[in-house]
Amino acid sequence: MPPVIPGFGHHRIPVADGVSLHAAVGGSGAPVVLLHGFPQTHLMWRHVAVDLAADHTVICPDLRGYGASDKPAESDGSGYAKRTMAADIVALARALGHERFALAGHDRGALVAFRAALDHPGAVTHLACLDILPTLDMWDVMHGVTAAVGFHLYLLAQPPGLPERMISAAPDTFFGHFLDIWTTDRGAVPDEVRAAYLAACREAVPSIVADYRASAGVDIEHDRADREAGRRLRMPVAVLQQDWGAALGFDAAALWRAWAPDLRHTTVSHGHFMAEEAPDDIAKALRELLAR
């Protein structure tokens, strides 16, 4: 039996024409939506979700193109734009009865959460982003040999065909590579969860590539338009991330503060998969954000 989040029910919710998302939902109280990263599914929140469900309604979807959610074929380059994926999440929350909700995301899910908070400020009450920079800033700081840490960003940005074929030739090796190198605690992702992640990724190569490809194109356009228009995040924002600034030579807090006037930025010592490595710390940080 595949792993699940204990005590959570499972729902399949239509969010757009022909697209439904799978979501695990549990608890009761003010709603909190938790968005997963790469190469994971909603299961990455299994510990934090149970903690928050003691006094919140917690919604953990699989993003469009990931896990048990639908994986529509990309057609015009906008199907996996973060704007499209963010609209999915707002529609999902509304379908479950929540016009306003707190939103936390990790990795790819944090990019979706960032876009949702910019596009739908009336819906997102609080925002937490784990271990990312906004897309426009991310590309700006990648340079020289230090950018090798993000080699996959460049591979997955290539035109349709090549990256899909390369990854499909050895998907477990490709996706497993990141599960291995992005953690400081190998026990944080147990074998059964790792197997679930890899199985989900094997079924989602084209949509995962489309998600990343959008971040080298349309997502940059959307971020740049917002920056030029002076748009900012209106809600309280918490950012937790590794010290990428020290490695790549930038001030992460300053980059975030340009987007988020009400910001608490924290540098952590955990690995990239911090919600699995240090769930108590992440749950505590989210509770502190929700209290603001």
Rank of each mutant, 00 (worst) to 15 (best):
P3G: 12
V4D: 15
I5Q: 00
F8Q: 14
H10A: 14
H10G: 10
P14D: 11
V19D: 02
S20H: 12
G27A: 01
G27D: 04
L35F: 03
H36Y: 06
L43T: 04
M44V: 15
M44R: 03
R46M: 12
L52H: 03
A53H: 12
D55Y: 00
V58F: 12
Y66Q: 05
S69C: 09
P72A: 07
P72S: 08
E74S: 15
G79T: 14
A81H: 00
A91G: 12
A91M: 04
A93M: 08
F101Q: 06
A102D: 04
L103G: 06
G105S: 06
G105Y: 02
G109M: 10
G109V: 10
A113I: 09
F114R: 05
A117W: 02
H120M: 05
P121F: 11
G122D: 14
V124F: 03
L127M: 12
A128S: 15
D131L: 00
D131K: 01
D131F: 04
D131G: 00
I132A: 08
I132V: 15
P134W: 09
T135D: 09
T135A: 13
D137R: 01
V141S: 13
V141C: 13
M142D: 02
M142G: 00
T146I: 07
Q158R: 14
L162N: 08
R165N: 14
R165V: 08
M166Q: 12
I167D: 08
D172H: 12
D172W: 07
F174Y: 15
F174R: 09
F175M: 07
G176I: 05
D180K: 11
T184V: 08
R186Y: 03
R186C: 01
A188T: 03
D191N: 06
R194G: 03
C201V: 01
A204Q: 06
A210W: 02
A210Q: 03
A210E: 04
Y212W: 09
V218W: 02
D226E: 14
R227D: 14
G230H: 12
R231G: 05
L233W: 13
R234G: 15
L240C: 11
D243C: 07
D243G: 09
A246Y: 01
G249S: 06
F250A: 07
A252Y: 04
A252W: 02
A254S: 14
L255K: 13
L255F: 07
W259C: 09
A260M: 07
P261N: 11
D262V: 02
L263R: 07
R264G: 07
H265Y: 15
S269Y: 00
H270A: 13
F273K: 12
M274T: 13
E276V: 08
D280V: 06
D281C: 00
E288W: 01
